[in-house]
């Protein structure tokens, strides 16, 4: 499962929902795999406000991944500055379709969408319940769901 998915998950135990420690879930004993995917630059630019950045940074640290910057990048940081000098100064602005991802965008893409937990556990910071990840699929079923 992709690290981005952790931005949308929390402990499945009802009483944990109101406890801020139930988000994010903390990977433990994780086996990571890189699964390459296309960079979707508009997505990366627009998802920034939805990312819980500090939590994401914490997860990267826990997984031993390269440290993310203390503050999230801006959308402009994700666009590669154009290398070719425009012939005229009044050239039309670069269309969005022509924008190229910067190294910052590629790094963010690698963390969010290419770094996958194949095996391991996700642990709630509040109740310490462990959810297993097997073959890339996280299992959030609780004994209480199955009665």
């Amino acid at each position: 499962m992709k690290l981005l998915t952790l931005n949308f998950l929390t402990c499945a135990i009802k009483t944990c929902k109101t406890n801020s420690a139930s988000f994010p879930l903390h990977p433990r004993d994780a086996e990571l795999e890189i699964v390459e995917a296309d960079v979707n630059l508009p997505f990366l630019k627009n998802i920034l406000p939805r990312l819980m950045w500090d939590e994401l940074r914490g997860i990267c640290t826990e997984l031993g991944l390269p440290e993310l910057p203390a503050t999230p990048p801006t959308p402009a940081d994700l666009i590669q500055p154009s290398s070719s000098t425009p012939e005229t100064t009044d050239a039309a602005p670069i269309a969005e379709a022509d924008e190229e991802p910067s190294q910052t965008a590629k790094d963010l893409h690698r963390v969010l969408l290419e770094t996958c937990i194949q095996e391991g556990k996700l642990v709630c910071g509040a109740c310490e319940h462990e959810y297993a990840v097997k073959e890339g699929v996280a299992n959030f079923l609780l004994p209480g769901h199955l009665v």
Binding site: M1, K2, L4, T5, N7, F8, L9, T10, C11, A12, K14, K17, F23, D38, N40, F43, R50, L113, Y131, G136, V137, A138, N139, F140, L141, L142, H145
Partner: peptide
């Protein structure tokens, strides 16, 4: 124009989904 697919997780309904995120 490929969109972004996250994952399919094994769970009971939306019990593991972060509040207000959908």
């Amino acid at each position: 124009g490929r969109s972004v697919f996250a994952d399919v997780v094994n769970g009971d309904l939306a019990s593991a989904i972060r509040p207000r995120s959908i």
